[in-house]
Simulated scan of single mutants.
Amino acid sequence: MSKISSNRVIRYTSLVMLFIIQLLFLLAIFKENNSTIALSFFIVLISFLLLYSFFKSPVHHHKFTYEKVYIAVWVPIGAVSCYFLNHQFGLGSVFSASLVGLAGALIPYLNKKSDYLSHLPPAIYCGSFVGMSNTKVAHDIYFILAASICTAVLLIISKSLLNGVGGKLGTLAFAGVAITYLILFLFSRS
């Protein structure tokens, strides 16, 4: 298999997985709100529009690249920071994520010439979305660590996917939390 075709397989597999995650997210929202037939039709319509936009919009580069691991390692730092601000200090999830995001945004100003520091804010902010998790899902700090590591892996492999699309970091965080929850659920049943 050539490198170009393997990159295409990775890209389309990633897009299909992202579509499935977004579809499951929509289904969870509507299930929670006791959806009707009209809302079910709305889910199907949005799903087809999302799928169409994934394959027709220029949301990825033709060259598949990876995020550097030493950038993605900041995802767990952002997640743990937000988790502690949210649950230990009682600041609330939105305010905690805002503080962590602000701190991450200020880090490049420590050394404006540093290329490394300029790449940290998105990783930290992505981690803060993981740290926003409710205690019904994220029972303890170990879950947050596992989910943030999963999210960091997703961030690494999705560098060249969905560039310029709003919500990429939040979607990655949701996927990391959902995958971690699913793995723990499956292992707790056996």
Rank of each mutant, 00 (worst) to 15 (best):
R189Y: 11
L117W: 02
H61W: 11
F143K: 10
L51P: 06
N86S: 09
L27Q: 11
H60A: 13
I183N: 02
P108Y: 00
S98L: 14
I21V: 15
H139I: 11
S40W: 10
S133I: 02
M1L: 12
V153A: 05
L145S: 13
G166A: 09
L184E: 12
F41L: 15
F30G: 14
A105W: 05
L162N: 04
I71F: 07
I21Y: 11
K112F: 01
F84A: 05
K113C: 05
S93W: 08
I10T: 09
L184K: 09
L23T: 14
S96D: 02
I4G: 07
N163P: 01
A146Q: 12
L85D: 07
V100D: 07
N33G: 02
H61K: 11
N7K: 05
F95V: 07
I124K: 00
L27H: 09
L45I: 14
S47H: 08
S96R: 03
L27S: 10
I37K: 04
G90D: 14
F30R: 14
C150D: 01
T151A: 03
K31H: 12
A28D: 12
F54Y: 15
P121F: 01
I183R: 00
I20D: 11
Y181P: 02
V73S: 08
G166K: 05
Y83L: 09
L161H: 10
T65G: 11
A105S: 10
P108W: 01
G164F: 02
L50Y: 13
S188W: 10
N34F: 11
G92S: 04
K56M: 12
G170T: 05
Q88Y: 08
V44L: 15
P108K: 00
F129W: 12
L26Y: 12
K63I: 15
C150V: 09
N163L: 07
G166M: 06
I183G: 08
N34Q: 12
H119S: 12
F41M: 14
K31Y: 12
L18F: 09
F54P: 08
K159L: 10
P108H: 00
A105V: 00
K113I: 06
Y66H: 12
K136Y: 11
K31T: 14
G131V: 01
P122N: 03
K159T: 03
S160G: 05
G164Y: 02
S47Y: 06
